[in-house]
């Protein structure tokens, strides 16, 4: 079973490399049960969006 520390690593890496099916399933399973990681997942998406908008906000 994936713990939060490794789950956040995978969530982060999903932005940097293709994630395997097995990894994706493990993440989904964890996210179903973990509210903290669900918040983290949304916040990562927000951080990416914000950083990519940064050039327009300078």
């Amino acid at each position: 079973m994936l713990d939060c520390k490794h789950n956040t690593e995978l969530l982060s890496q999903s932005y940097d490399r293709p994630i395997t099916l097995r990894e994706r399933i493990a993440m989904r399973m964890h996210l179903l049960m973990c509210r903290g990681c669900r918040n983290f997942e949304k916040q990562l998406a927000f951080i990416r969006k914000a950083t990519r908008e940064l050039p327009r906000k300078l």
Partner: peptide, 23 residues
């Protein structure tokens, strides 16, 4: 500091209020 020994959050992330508006 963020994670306990067992790999769980020391303090799980809470919801962010209206992040889109922040932009």
């Amino acid at each position: 500091a963020l994670f306990k020994q067992n790999g769980h959050w020391a303090d799980p992330p809470r919801t962010w209020n209206a992040p889109e508006q922040s932009l």
